[in-house]
Design a protein around this nucleic acid. Sequence first.
RNA 1: GCGACUAUGGUGUAACGGUUAGCACAUCAGUUUGUGGUACUGAUAGCGAGGGUUCGACUCCCUCUAGUCGCCCCA
Length: 469
Amino acid sequence: MPPIKKLEKDKKKPIKAPVVEVPKKKVKAAPELLRGFRDILPEEQPRWDLVQDTVRQLADAYSFGRVELPILERTELFIRTVGKQTDIVEKEMYAFEDAAGEKVALRPEATASIARTYINHGMLNLPQPVKLWYWGPMFRHDRPQAGRYRQFNQFGFEVIGVEDPIVDAQLIIIATQLFRDLGIDVTIQINSIGTPEMRQAYLAELVSYFRPYRSQLSDDDKRRLQKNPLRILDSKDPAVQELLAGAPQIIDWLSEPAKQHFMKVLEFLDEMEVPYVLNPHLVRGLDYYTHTVFEIWEAGDEGEHAQNALGGGGRYDQLIEILGGRPETPACGFAVGVERVVKALAQRGIANEAKNKPKVFFAQLGDAARRSGLRIFEDFRKQGISVAEAFGKSALKAQLEVANKLDVDLTLILGQKEVLDGTIIIRDMELGAQEIVDSSKIVELVKKRLDKKAGIVEEPLPVIGPSAP
RNA sequence: GCGACUAUGGUGUAACGGUUAGCACAUCAGUUUGUGGUACUGAUAGCGAGGGUUCGACUCCCUCUAGUCGCCCCA
């Protein structure tokens, strides 16, 4: 066994070598997280699980198929779809050249990829609409803030191939239902921004409306007026807000069919009693949106925190064509920021605890007990019962302390004596009562007791409040 | 990208221009050797980084970094 020899060799080294240098200074600075990136730790997982489960259930119920999209795409994809002038593409994208000189980017959003998938896989040959959903990380090099990270997760629902306004409405209904299931009250902010052609005339009108007031505008708003006039609609400057009251509204510039489309969407929403707010100032940052646009806001959050929308979406009838797909392929969808949803859940104290918390703890004394402990674990696993342990500790006391902190119902104690006798001790952690049982029947007995406990707990539970010891 | 505020062990915090930087929780080990929740003892662990002012700085100043908030933008 050469490794052993090696070890012995190494042992000698420190004696001679002047290793003293290292401990002198604490050279090792802990590696820091990249700005805007974060670890999602175990205690946060229950909420993530809840969101994921809820999303998956809804996707199944409405028969959306899941797509797993690559995180890295050609930079070109986003330039063409999201819009070259948008901040997302202009300055927030993680774009670089790979080893082969290919221009690639970490995706800043997923709708572009969805459209690409639709085209690449010839989904126009499937029965329309094609309904897809996705979940995964997105990347934007933006300044981090509460609820805003450089790597964040989004899930989204997309319906491609049908123009009917019922699609828009159904997506909004799904979004609403999703938050209802999660226990978060939301309102839908909704507007229609027509098509680029209709918008052009409107934008000209909007710009000329603001021209006389130009001197009163902030630099930001002046810039908007020049670069992306639509965005002035959601300016937070109170003076601008006032001016906007008298400004032309985009609705009035929509074509008759576009108006009809929008009215139909609203009718469907009324029908389903979806709480929405007509918001003539709602616009979207991405170039590809047409007609219906909407955002999902936490109820009671209206006004001030508009930038903390939980999600947003709308119709993008021209995106497929922009990417070289069949012209006039209609599409509609929405995306939701998971971090923001999880934050909202945390604020409401929803899903604070893991569902699969172990109810049983295994305590052992001695090697023989540990060995059979490993086997017992397998038996419990097969029955779907999760068992906690502290094999690293030898004192029974220390192990019981852990069991107590884990708040388990039962602790199994296996010592030298029990191993020899073929028995095992079941300790009820609440009562402190113990029982010696046949170790071959342990799984069955534990199962019975857990069921019983679950039953007992349900009865006297109504007594709420701190129990006086 | 712009502006404001903040930065002490794993967490929450205290103090001071000058002696071993205090406390609580958590962690680990014990309180005579196979029994938890309470108690006691002990241990580990910190002034975000780098400059400057000063005889001397965790404390004052500057830069950087990070966080929070607002703007921009967006989920």
